Simulated assay, not measured.
Amino acid sequence: MEGFNNRVKVLKRRCYGIFDIERLFQRISLDLNGYQTFAVT
Rank of each mutant, 00 (worst) to 15 (best):
21 I>D: 06
21 I>L: 08
5 N>Y: 02
13 R>G: 07
29 S>E: 10
24 L>A: 05
1 M>D: 03
3 G>N: 04
28 I>M: 11
11 L>F: 02
35 Y>M: 07
12 K>E: 08
39 A>H: 06
36 Q>N: 10
41 T>R: 15
30 L>W: 08
14 R>Q: 14
5 N>S: 03
15 C>T: 12
14 R>P: 00
36 Q>V: 03
20 D>N: 15
24 L>W: 09
13 R>A: 12
30 L>R: 02
6 N>L: 13
16 Y>W: 07
33 N>G: 07
21 I>S: 10
39 A>M: 06
14 R>K: 12
37 T>G: 00
33 N>F: 15
12 K>T: 05
28 I>Y: 00
17 G>T: 05
29 S>V: 09
2 E>Q: 05
27 R>P: 00
21 I>P: 13
17 G>S: 12
3 G>R: 02
8 V>R: 10
19 F>D: 10
5 N>Q: 01
36 Q>H: 11
20 D>E: 13
12 K>F: 05
14 R>W: 01
19 F>Y: 10
16 Y>A: 14
19 F>C: 08
16 Y>H: 11
13 R>D: 11
24 L>V: 09
36 Q>L: 05
7 R>Y: 09
27 R>K: 15
31 D>R: 03
29 S>N: 10
2 E>N: 06
38 F>R: 11
16 Y>F: 13
31 D>Y: 06
15 C>F: 01
22 E>M: 12
4 F>E: 09
18 I>D: 04
40 V>R: 12
33 N>E: 12
2 E>T: 04
15 C>I: 03
27 R>F: 15
